[in-house]
Nucleic acid binder design. Structure first.
Lengths: 137, 137
DNA sequence: CTCAATACGTTATAGCATAACATCGCCGCA
DNA sequence: TGCGGCGATGTTATGCTATAACGTATTGAG
């Protein structure tokens, strides 16, 4: 079944709808997937979805998967995640596993420091097959 | 000035043209950027560029930057890179720095092993400001 | 109340990527 | 030589992803 996060109460209507759609989905959704799910709730234009997604991503309630041009709800119930987040995306079933790794984060930080590079955000995405799908293949 | 890689001789005409365009560019190029640069050489349709890019990426002669929907030539002169590659992308000047880190690779490998996840490819992209642009800001 | 800031709604358009189909050229081999 | 397969190519059409530009509505601070 899908996630069952609580939706923060200070979201706007559209933000709440979009986050709800993400929470109830098994896997990542494109902005247009979301739009289709929410037409019944009065959403009509891509921009309504993109604007809500921008805010949600900004607040860390949702994440953008760059390699998929799609979005997922943050897997962390109360969104305590601060640092770098990595995603493992299964090409078989589409499920996404979200995790953090302090060593990797530190390592990237070291590299950046050595180069004088000022990091603003990092995307890390692993594509492959989850255990279930790998065994089924 | 731009890179000065040699172009492998077994590339097809279109592949050679596309790789040449990437090699002569200071920064990442979208497929349509490439197309525009190569109209004078007879290329007319996006698909011609995308097909060449697919092959080049497959062979490791070029890389796709997911967070930019753009492509760069591989920075390694003779394309000896085997493992995971990371990219630092400057939002100021657009330059891309390509690097590898064995520790990160090992760390991801450990995670995957523990989860039974079969990795097919990984994208790691840092967005931020390079030293020059950070100081200028 | 008034202003500023933010969200919202709508239309149009820009930018990225692939489907589908026909052709061509090269190479191995009967 | 000539057949046959395969991969690259060319072309048109189309689909998916994302934002520009405009105006209205709502909210909250002073």
């Amino acid at each position: 079944m899908a996630h069952s996060h609580e939706v923060p109460s200070d979201l706007t209507r559209n933000q709440g709808l979009v986050l709800g759609a993400l929470n109830h989905s098994e896997g990542p959704l494109s902005a247009y997937d979301i739009l289709d799910k929410l037409r019944g709730d009065g959403l009509r234009a891509p921009l309504q979805v993109y604007r809500a997604l921008d805010k949600l991503v900004e607040r860390g309630l949702a994440h953008r998967l760059e390699s998929l041009n799609a979005f997922v709800a943050c897997a962390d119930e109360h969104c305590h995640r601060k640092g770098l987040i990595a995603f493992a995306i299964c090409e078989g079933c589409g499920k996404v596993d979200e995790f953090a790794d302090a060593v990797i984060e530190e390592r990237l930080g070291d590299w950046a420091k050595a180069k004088g590079f000022k990091v603003e955000r990092t995307t890390m995405e692993i594509r492959g097959k989850c255990e279930t799908c790998a065994l089924a293949a």
